[in-house]
Design a protein around this nucleic acid. Structure first.
Length: 301
RNA sequence: GGUGCCAUAGCUCAGUAGGUAGAGCAACGGACUGAAAAUCCGUGUGUCCGUGGUUCGAUUCCACGUGGCACCA
């Protein structure tokens, strides 16, 4: 039997965790979490990480495996997951990867180009340049160092420009020369499923879940991390709004409303990402049997 | 009961010296190969409270009605 990676994705708050644990029980397998914020062990409440009980019931990987101080990326995730799958496929024909981080899922499913790592000091240099000269300064340098990418990149998105510049500066070669955009074939079969709900229901769930997080101690969790608030891992819905409240910039009630709104917007962005992926078969959270039928049907092919 | 003010987008409000209307927030759509729960881009969605009147033409002016607010009884 061919090894299979079963992807379970869907917007935040839709109920992926429960579905994926049920599927893991049914298939007698383990779960690779693909959620770029559940990696961080300091923020379980705000990321709605699987509970102790759920973790006990089903073995999860990549949950709380990093500190918010660690650097991580989609590329590192691709490398780590492929390595882990090599081990897991010795014990399981099917492994589940569940989560909502689209770029990380894509990195595992079809890879991303090999590009050398960047010295953090170089990124810092460009962030400074952005602060001092604005986006115009970044654009001017990119036009010189990589005119090809200059024509393609979103020139109003400073992160995209900095990314290209730091590669140019690190390697001495244009960023665009590394971008092959090839889709790598994997040694295992990939079945992609998504969990979705009507927008209205999803947004109600999200609003309720934020209230639950507050009850579960999100505020206290955020307060402990206040001094680290400038770390990228904490530029996250649920934390940035509370930091703003702690700094006196908004009141508590407004901060909670903003968490809800920003989570809704995040869910919308996730759905936009997947809209172009025609390989995903969509189900409702209650359709467990349909998902099992679909997967077993595909496995029999 | 009387007088005055108000009624325009989901919300708060602008505006049209009469030519079917626009801001903020919300909402909606999209991009995205190493920060991605990040970052960036785009879009006004409207019986202008109702019914008459004046007018070539009324959301705008007039009358009445309805609802809200304030003050006087």
């Amino acid at each position: 039997m061919q090894n299979t990676l079963l992807v379970v994705t869907g917007p935040t708050g839709v109920g992926k965790t429960d579905v994926s644990i049920s599927l893991a029980s049914f298939f007698g397998t383990e779960i690779i979490s693909c959620d770029s914020r559940q990696f961080y062990r300091e923020i379980p409440v705000g990321t709605c990480a699987p509970s102790e009980e759920q973790l006990w019931k089903t073995r999860h990987h990549f949950v709380g495996n990093l500190s918010v101080r660690d650097y991580y990326s989609a590329s590192l995730f691709e490398r780590d997951v492929l390595a882990l799958l090599g081990v897991l496929f010795k014990q399981h024909d099917l492994v589940i990867m569940a989560g909502g981080s689209g770029m990380y899922i894509d990195a595992v499913c079809h890879g991303i180009d090999d590009i050398p790592d960047v010295d953090p000091m170089i990124r810092e240099k460009y962030v400074m340049k952005y602060r001092e000269e604005g986006i115009e300064g970044l654009r001017a340098e990119l036009k010189l160092l990589d005119p090809v990418h200059f024509k393609k990149v979103d020139l109003r998105n400073y992160k995209r420009i900095i990314r290209a510049l730091e590669i140019c500066a690190t390697t001495g070669m244009p960023y665009s020369s590394f971008m092959k955009m090839e889709k790598r074939r994997r040694e295992f079969r990939i079945i992609k499923t998504g969990i979705e709900l009507p927008r209205r229901e999803l947004f109600e769930r999200i609003n309720r879940r934020v209230d639950t997080m507050i009850c579960n101690g999100l505020e206290e969790e955020a307060r402990l991390l206040f001094d680290l608030r400038n770390l990228n891992a904490l530029n996250t819905v649920g934390y940035k709004e509370l930091f703003s409240y702690f700094e006196g910039k908004t009141d508590r009630e407004t901060a909670i409303e903003l968490i809800k709104r920003n989570t809704r917007r995040y869910a919308k962005r996730q759905m936009t990402w997947w809209a172009r992926d025609k390989d995903i078969r969509w189900f409702n959270p209650g359709d467990l049997q349909q998902i099992i039928d679909y997967v077993t049907g595909r496995l029999a092919d």
